[in-house]
Amino acid sequence: MKRKNYAYPYLFWMTIFAVLPLFLVLLYSLTFKNGLKSGITFSNFVRFFEPIYLEVLLRSINLALISTIICLLLGYPIAYIISKANIKHRNTLILLFLIPMWMNFLLRTYAWMTLLEKNGILNKFLTSIGLGPLNIMYTNSAVVLGMVYNFLPFMVLPIYTVLIKIDRSLIEAANDLGANKIITFIKVTLPLSLPGVISGITMVFMPSVTTFAISRLLGGGQFTLIGNLIEQQFINVGDWNFGSAISIVMMVIILISMGIMNRFDKDKEGVNLW
């Protein structure tokens, strides 16, 4: 069959627009241009390990980890509760979880800007009950809040998909064999839902590490994340070589963490958001 020719336009397209650009970025990260001089160098990577930049990297990873943990703690119980509801309620509840996700994420972030503002609703409310105005806006807490709000569905959906697929008879068997509800949960439900938890973690952690819009809008200027650093290098500073080096580092971090996560997920429990 000659059918495989059908893939060649795609291969051509992806080679030019997906593979080649990455090589260009790699090339930029390994070269320098200083006036007329240019050549090969590792200095862009070395520069990244200076304390100021390492701090940015650590802050990004730190905030992303906190957001992921909060999403897991908030998301698992709700996924569990929804999965236990009867079918009709279940579908409605999950649909309700999906609806905000279909709204542009910048609008959702913007909504929090209006809430957290100095003269915003939240502060008006807190002042009226005597808790005083809270200055959350433009802090790390606001960034974490924005991440949790935007990415919580990414945690809930995969866990939910795995939970509803668990064979009921396994839980009944555990009960028949004398396990109480808590033991059944710890010994049966939780281990079986781990693939969902793992994809949830990956799907929240990845966009949290790489975001730059959320931190820019809610975090203000002074709390730069690695995404902001890349944006800055390309848009404002114009140091493409250094920007490329940061991008390569970030790409490697993401690919390594995905690789580690994939190891845990032996069954390749695919998560389908659709």
Binding site: A18, P21, L22, L24, V25, M206, P207, V209, T210, F212, G227, I230, E231, F234, G243, S244, S247, M250, M251, I254, L255, M258
Partner: peptide, 10 residues
């Protein structure tokens, strides 16, 4: 799999 921002700048 690549972060959006890397695809974007590349």
């Amino acid at each position: 799999l690549n972060p959006d921002i890397v695809t974007a700048i590349s």
